[in-house]
Structures are given as structure tokens and as C-alpha cells.
């Protein structure tokens, strides 16, 4: 059939688009999965506000609820399941230990193509720690 070449061409274009990521990754070596760096202070604290598994996947939810609680209800005290009390504050609590935004926050966020708007208002490392 004289249209066969067009059909084959269409198939080739479609599969080309579909398998483009595969070809691209063969040409360009992708960076490996990021390792987050804990500061000495974070290591010393042993545990974050919540367990590590919870924090890796749900920290944004926790931060959102914190913000709501502080801004809307003026409640600044957070008690975790172990009964430990925390000040609900990104700058004073989170960034107190995790003062290394580039090596901690940004690594995963960049890897997963997430652009959180925390830093629209907050400055990172407000205390200027190592």
C-alpha cells in the first residue's frame, strides 16, 4: 500500500516519543539518588519531631498544620506522641538542627522536582550556623 510508509513513520514517531526518556538516559548519565546530610546537632538529637519514616514522606503536612496552628490559632506548642514538647517553628525548630538547607532540604526537593514555597518568606539558616 502506498500509505504504509506514512503509517510506519507515525509508529516510529510515536515509539520515539515513548522511548525518548530511555534513549536520553543512555546518552546522559543521571545523577544517583541524593543522600541527605545531617548536621552534628541533628545527629546528636537522634530523632526528629516524629520518626524518620514519617518525616520523609509527611513533613510537608506537619509543617502545614503547624503554620495553620500558629497563624490562625496562635498555638505554638507541639507535643509529639512521645510527649516531647516542641515550638512550632520552621526557623527556630526545624532549621535549628537542619541548618544545612542545600545539603538537606534541597537535595530531595530538587531530585523529585518539588519547589516548596517555604523560602518565599523564610530565610534558610537564620542563625547562621554551620
Amino acid at each position: 500500500m502506498k500509505d504504509k510508509k506514512w503509517i510506519v513513520l507515525g509508529l516510529v514517531v510515536f515509539f520515539g516519543l515513548l522511548l525518548f526518556p530511555l534513549a536520553w538516559n543512555m546518552l546522559v548519565k543521571a545523577a544517583p539518588a541524593p543522600e541527605v546530610v545531617l548536621t552534628k546537632k541533628a545527629k546528636a538529637a537522634k530523632q526528629c519531631v516524629m520518626p524518620k519514616e514519617y518525616m520523609t514522606s509527611e513533613h510537608m503536612q506537619l509543617l502545614d498544620l503547624w503554620r495553620h496552628s500558629v497563624v490562625r490559632n496562635a498555638k505554638r506548642e507541639y507535643v509529639n506522641p512521645e510527649g516531647k514538647k516542641f515550638d512550632m517553628s520552621l526557623s527556630n525548630t526545624c532549621l535549628d538542627c537542619h541548618s544545612n538547607k542545600e545539603q538537606f532540604c534541597d537535595r530531595c526537593h530538587n531530585y523529585a522536582s518539588v519547589r516548596p514555597y517555604c523560602w518565599d518568606c523564610h530565610i534558610d539558616n537564620p542563625k547562621g550556623e554551620e
Binding site: 530511555l22 538516559n25 539518588a33 519514616e53 514522606s57 503536612q61 531530585y111 523529585a112
Partner: peptide, 18 residues
Amino acid sequence: TKVDITAIKELTMGLITL
């Protein structure tokens, strides 16, 4: 029910780089 997105991307990058 949030998931660990970094671990998932590690898996998918492993898949796509064969």
C-alpha cells in the same frame, strides 16, 4: 497517605536506566 517520593524516583530512575 504520602509516600517516600525520593525512594520512588530512585526506583523509576533505575528502571529507565536499565
